[in-house]
Design a protein around this nucleic acid. Structure first.
Length: 287
DNA sequence: TTGTGTTTTATTGCCTCC
DNA sequence: GGAGGCAATAAAACACAA
């Protein structure tokens, strides 16, 4: 009896089915009342073609409570349990099955709501964290901007004295001496060219990707210089400076301004990168 | 009392499993 | 092919404000 047409349902076929709560209590039978049984008995004798009013009856609180308890135990209904519950509650097995089906649907809806709440809470926490980091990031960027502006002023002032014996010019001259002993036409050129290529944007990389990479790298240990969405480690920058400078000899100032221009288009991610351009700080010999 | 929104009971059609 | 589950839906019952 899987499929029921509307005319098959008890509520449709039988008036006052299931029996009203008051009727059941009045008869104290817990199941069908005598009156209801009489209706059932007389139903067969009636003309089935007659128009019968359709009345849905809500289950009594006792029935619902019992069904709820049973649902708590197991939300799936085995045939034996269905028949037992139906007998116990004075319901049709089909009614019990329908109740469980609807109950499962309600449970699923509630579960979806709960899952949504949990996910939303997670999302809100994550977003709060992200916003906080973003504010922090903006603050740091502002600070960096100020420091760079200050650095430009300082370097402009010190350029006058740099021509004298500054640590950088000492370093440059030592590099020039070293370069004389070295064949720069092979390795030096290639190394410089490769590094220069590193400065140029690579094909196929999007800005958003590189920005993401920048954000990630800013948290890393190695200092890097972003250039048009690409990053270049400070060591590579130093090498480029060293090689180019050694080739050009006395074009140190030119390169310094070149790097300053690059610097304007990029952000240093660490203090180390900032210190590289610091005139106040004497370069250590290793770089 | 009545209009309206919500909840509950029941039906229908489709799908899967045995 | 029958039994049972599920989603969508209808419709009655109920709650409640105006």
């Amino acid at each position: 009896m899987k499929r029921f047409s509307r005319s098959d349902s008890l509520g449709t076929l039988i008036p006052n089915y299931p029996p009203k709560e008051e009727e059941k209590h009045a008869n104290n039978s817990g199941g069908y009342s005598k009156e209801f049984q009489a209706i059932l008995d007389t139903y067969d004798q009636e003309d089935c073609g007659e128009e019968i009013s359709v009345k849905k009856r809500r289950l009594s609180s006792h029935q619902v409570k019992t069904l709820e308890i049973s649902f708590e135990v197991e939300n799936k209904l085995e045939p034996e349990r269905k028949v037992k519950l139906a007998e116990e509650l004075g319901l049709e097995p089909r009614q019990v099955a329908i109740w469980f089906q609807n109950r499962r649907a309600r449970w699923k809806t509630k579960q979806l709501e709960r899952d949504y709440s949990v996910l939303k809470a997670d999302y809100d926490a994550l977003k709060h964290n992200y916003d906080s980091l973003e504010r922090q990031n903006k603050g740091l960027a502002e600070k960096l901007k100020e420091l760079k502006a200050k650095l430009c002023v300082d370097s402009a002032e010190s350029n006058q004295s740099v021509k004298e014996e500054s640590p950088i010019s000492l370093y440059k001259s030592s590099v020039m001496e070293a370069s004389r002993d070295q064949d720069l036409s092979d390795n030096g050129d290639n190394a410089g060219l490769d590094l220069y290529k590193n400065l140029k944007p690579k094909d196929g990389s999007s800005d958003s990707d590189s920005n993401g990479a920048m954000k990630e790298e800013s948290n890393g240990n190695e200092s890097s210089l972003g250039y048009n969405g690409h990053s270049l480690s400070s060591h590579s920058m130093m090498n480029l400076f060293q090689l180019s400078d050694s080739r050009s000899g006395n074009k140190g100032y030119h390169h310094q301004t070149q790097f300053a221009r690059i610097e304007e288009q990029s952000l240093f991610s660490t203090e180390e990168s900032c210190n590289f351009f610091s005139v106040d700080q004497a370069p250590s010999l290793h770089w």
